[in-house]
Design a protein around this nucleic acid. Structure first.
Lengths: 197, 197, 197, 197
DNA sequence: TCCTAAGCGAGACGGTACGTCCAGTCTTCGT
DNA sequence: ACGAAGACTGGACGTACCGTCTCGCTTAGGA
């Protein structure tokens, strides 16, 4: 007896991978060139050399497109392992702040936060992507510190994320200031002292 | 010789105060009803029963209008004075979180953050308004605590604002979770310990 | 054991000459349902259960398809032979007018004239089809009348067609009125008198 | 006592006469350049230098626009008065045929007939415009001929229109042939004989 | 009491982008 | 090799807003 087909075998011409790639690239390029808000679906399609129908077949609006496009850019948060809690936290905050600092991604991020604030689907996607990744990194750092006896066990990683990442977000988003190393070190120092044994 | 004009004495029919009021009200109402992004200048003018020219004579775009309209709503952050640093901070955070919680202002705030992220003029207005007010409240609290000897003098109020308000912002904006009293108390406790003498 | 598929049998190759039939039927049906202009190639293909490529392999546009589809409908103009010129003409005009009157073909005909007016290929096809047939019928009638001595020999059949069929066309196309028997009789009477010996 | 306002005083900015003129001109020009069917609303608006909204505010589709635009072109059918019925008819038919012949209006006319065949509103407009004018011309000619005793009184002008204009229409629309003077003279001769006293 | 300037609501203006639909072509899978 | 399914680019559709510009009409202060 032959194995049963999984399900829903696609019929007709399959979707072009090239079109996806071109759309992602066009979206990123346009956001950098003219800013998130000035980007239009029409402009993306044209820049990508893709018909509007093809674009709309994939993305109902520009937000999901941008989320997907950004996925390839800010996917990785390297989990540091310096041997000490303080070293790990400082390095994690710093690598995050560098992302904020990068003029290339700067506008993308603020635009993305804007989109999250208004669109629940975007918000969910980001939460399950970058945000979850960050929190997991924090969880590992805390777990190792606990294993070394630097910290009590069971400290809430989500709460630690709020404490460490919140100040950076505030400075970036509300103040519009640079999130430099001096700032991340001060945040790390104060919060680490606050959550110490 | 004729009397010198003081300055730019207005000529012609003065601007209607009613129109301003109606525009503010219409903007707020529409944001609550259909969301910040779906609000259009056209819609505001119609809802306010005001000509579009009248609207554009006052506001170049919807952001300044919304900022002004919101000014009347989130003007006051009462500066608590409980006699202890901890009490003051807990009360300040709590009153802030209540604003986040209020379903009435919730959408307004996220929409405003969205606007800040994309529009420098809005960002400036908000920074010089609500944000500055909050930081001043923090400054007073810290000063009183220092005067009581609870805290060292000269602690950076802006930095304290990042530490206290940042986690709330993160939770509100990124997680989309309720900013309840338990959360504000935990933030207050950790950060106070971190900045303690 | 191979189970027999009840429904949703995947339609593959066995459809060759059925496709033509289905396309004709779909075209006719759609013209009646939604009108000539609202008919699209896409709609015809879908209604016929035929791929668009299959459709385009047969017809470059909807006009040739419609012409071919209509061929089966308005193929025959019976050449009357009543024994007198007047009888023949009256019968020919009447049978033509009945075609105009038929609510089923009415829209098809006006749509076809519309297509002729704009598309030379359609025009040629119709001229070599229905129009030529009609003129030949007229030629036979005139020839028999001449043989009977009712009419001079060599009367131009094309011109007679203009004289007899033109008024019907005008009434049908321009006035949008019914082309009833009273009308065809009056036309026959006047024109016959005009071309009499 | 002051006179009452008539009615419905217009409010807001009045519609621009320039836009109307530009739209008419653009429609005519485009039909001549690329043919009736290839003309799009978008193209008309662009050629006229007019916003699409302005165009759609005036015309729901291109047919009414074309009808209106053509109104200015084929308004006049000069009613001939040569002193004899034959002279009048020959002149009327000839001036009509010249309109058919004019390469400028040729496409317009066939496109218009196409539109009539499919759109009742267009058909009505044309019937009450050009068609009615032509029939009235015919009526005057017949009346003068009757007054001169050349013809019996009360001959149906509409029917005469069918007889005279129908053959021209058929030749123009179905055959696609030139409607030259020889043809119009032959038609005039036969039909006049057919309706003679 | 008029005059003049700037206000007012209404709505048309030239534009841009929207999201949908269809044209005509191309690609994959299954028969 | 053919046929269905459905992807592809391209472009018009008709709508909604943008920000500007007339309209006819207040509404004030100054002459």
């Amino acid at each position: 007896m032959t194995r049963q087909r999984i399900v829903n075998r696609p019929r007709g011409r399959p979707r072009s991978q090239d079109a996806d790639t071109a759309l992602h690239a066009a979206a990123i390029a346009l956001i950098r060139d003219i800013g998130y808000d000035a980007v239009t679906m029409e402009g993306i399609a044209e820049r990508a050399g893709v018909g509007k129908a093809t674009l709309y077949r994939r993305f109902a609006s520009k937000e999901p497109l941008v989320v997907e496009a950004l996925g390839g850019i800010m996917r990785k948060v390297p989990v540091p392992d310096t041997g000490t809690l303080g070293g790990d936290v400082r390095r994690l905050l710093r690598s995050t702040s560098i992302m904020y600092e990068d003029p290339a991604t700067r506008h993308l991020l603020s635009g993305l936060v804007a989109a999250m604030a208004r669109n629940e689907a975007i918000a969910r996607a980001v939460r399950h992507g970058f945000v979850a990744t960050w929190r997991d990194a924090m969880r590992q750092i805390l777990a190792r510190a606990a294993a070394r006896g630097e910290l009590r066990r069971g400290l809430d990683a989500a709460f630690a994320t709020h404490l460490f990442a919140g100040p950076l977000l505030y400075r970036f988003l509300i103040d519009g200031d640079r999130v430099d190393e001096r700032f991340t070190r001060r945040v790390a120092a104060v919060v680490l002292r606050g959550i110490a044994l």
